[in-house]
């Protein structure tokens, strides 16, 4: 049965979702601030009101635009609407998730976060892939599978929404760390240690915010990290490499051409961990490194000299 689907945001991911949904025979309308060209039968509008008639709305905007987008959406949606967002970031020092923002700014309650190793081009072209949907509402999973799944995309689900969002955002930071380490010539075993201990570190912090450890070890966390390391051209990797080549953080961001939130997330995460008395050696060291407060040799030495204990 055909669904009426709204897509908010016409960037890479928004476009891919619109193409995948239309391919599965759904009635799709895309909202964007600027007019964009999209293939038929996808409709395009710059009026947010177009999503009012939709049953399912995908929000595909960067996390830093989540607040303003949610405010606009809040004026047109109500309890009937189901929302799935694909943003991979957290907002502000309180590490607020995009789901929380949508919940605060709109009256929608049936919200989910789609994450994992899902790449926009694979989704757009219908290549086999997988993703994870964090939601407490099973009907949302069913609808997401109807909209995007088919035989091409395996959408798993978990009720640990906050876990999916935190894993997705913090793994972005670990991608920067790994790319940096790779660029300065770290051994594969060093990369493995950084990746696994980094996952432990971010999941420890995530658990204090209500996330489950298992979610970090699933598609939203480890799965996404493996996809990035396997060669998925993520901007986080480009940022890590640029930093390792000596670029300043602001310049490196400019070079990448996309706003990578990993370092900001790590900074806020460190602050949160400090308040709770938790240790975050990898995040702290890398943030200091990216800000030019220490050099790579000191960073490696600082990490290697730490007390080593049980896994």
């Amino acid at each position: 049965m055909s669904l009426r689907i709204g897509v908010v945001g016409a960037g890479g991911f928004g476009r891919a979702i619109a193409l995948a949904s239309a391919r599965h025979g759904h009635d799709v309308v895309v909202w964007s601030r600027k007019d964009r060209e999209l293939p038929d039968p996808i409709r395009m509008s710059t009026d947010i009101g177009v999503v009012e008639d939709c049953e399912l709305i995908f929000v595909a905007v960067p996390a830093r635009h989540a607040v303003s987008t949610a405010e606009q959406l809040g004026e047109v949606v109500d309890g009937r609407h189901l929302i799935i967002h694909v943003s991979r970031g957290l907002i502000g020092a309180e590490l607020k998730t995009v789901t929380q923002v949508i919940r605060d700014k709109t009256v929608c309650r049936r919200i989910g976060a789609l994450a994992g190793p899902l790449a926009a081009d694979a989704l757009a072209e219908g290549r086999p892939s997988g993703a994870i949907l964090g939601t407490g509402f099973p009907e949302l999973t069913e609808m997401a599978r109807d909209a995007l799944g088919g035989g091409e995309l395996r959408i798993y689900d978990t009720p640990d929404v906050v876990g999916v969002e935190l894993a997705s955002a913090t793994v972005g930071f670990l991608m920067v760390v790994l790319a940096y380490a790779q660029e300065i010539g770290a051994e594969p075993s060093t990369l493995a240690v950084l990746a696994t201990r980094g996952m432990v570190e971010v999941s420890r912090v995530g658990q204090t915010l209500g996330a489950k450890e298992a979610t970090f070890m699933g598609l939203a966390g480890l799965g996404d990290l493996i996809a990035a390391v396997a060669g998925d051209q993520r901007p986080e990797f480009q940022l890590g490499r640029a930093l390792a080549q000596g670029a300043k953080l602001s310049n490196a961001r400019g070079k990448v051409g996309a706003y990578v939130e990993g370092i900001d997330v790590a900074r806020h995460m460190m602050e949160h961990a400090r308040r709770l008395g938790l240790d975050t050696p990898i995040s702290s060291t890398f943030v200091a490194l990216s800000e030019g407060r220490i050099n790579p040799d000191d960073a490696i030495q600082a990490l290697m000299e730490r007390h080593v204990g049980k896994e």
Partner: peptide, 17 residues
Amino acid sequence: SLTPSGREIDAGGYVER
């Protein structure tokens, strides 16, 4: 039932599919 901005909504929409 009201939205954060004070718009009136039908709470029945939450149990609709």
